[in-house]
Amino acid sequence: MVEHRPLLKFVSHAVLILGAIIVAFPLYVTFVASTLSLEEILTVPMPLLPGNRFFENYAQVLTAGTTTGSHAAVGSMLFNSMVMALVVPLGKISISIISAFAIVYFRFPMRNFFFWMIFVTLMLPVEVRIIPTFKVIADLGLLNTYAGLTLPLIASATATFLFRQFFMTIPDELAEAARMDGAGPMRFFFDVVLPLSKTTMAALFVIQFIYGWNQYLWPLLVTSEESMYTTVIGIKRMIVGSDAANEWNLVMATAVLAMLPPALVVVLMQRWFVKGLVDTEK
């Protein structure tokens, strides 16, 4: 639209700015709270300008955790979260791209059956299968391990389906040309399919990184040792008992730390994202 109507422009900007403020305000309060002392937070009303305990608060959570709640250092929690947020998407992408490749490019018996098997699992949310999954992981002795934390989340129907849809848009002639050139299936996969899937992979990585980072229910079940807590679980474990008993300044500092990596990933990968959407190399 190239309409030029000043009033419309003003109203639309006002609405957008208001929306941004509404969304950003809780984040701001979180940040402010993380720079105050506990006493300052508990005063009514809570100050809305940053305090002077920024370094103390962050240093304490990173190295020692809270004193009343969990004592696990957030530093190691961040590491655990990072492991989970990296292993889950990388594992997901590598497994589903290979399964999608098999389903699209190979004619094997019951191909459609297997595809539908994978597809049907889309309909089962994590919560439905969480007890049997827990039992399996427990029986395998994987509680409180990185494997136990990540393995069940790696299998993914969504990613397989996405890659399948993408592969089906690659012209058949390309596969045939590669066959003519003497490329075997795996050669075709690495030389042609993989480079063409780069943008799809980037998109999936971003989505799955956030998914892995924000996991709550599963890590809550499989981790009971403080050293295996992820950041999100850490926040939960820091909150104990009544309102006044919690060190909210430390909890808020942890929350800010928990929000940073996903935000960074989105910001840094955004250019890639857009580039991938703009020039489809097909």
């Binding site: 012209p171 002639e173 390309l174 045939e176 040309a177 066959r179 003519m180 050139d181 003497g182 042609v192």
Partner: peptide, 16 residues
């Protein structure tokens, strides 16, 4: 195909 010593040009070019 690769063992037949032939080369093919496709309708849609099929360039990588």
């Amino acid at each position: 195909p690769k063992d037949r010593d032939i080369a093919m040009v496709f309708q849609q070019y099929a360039l990588y």
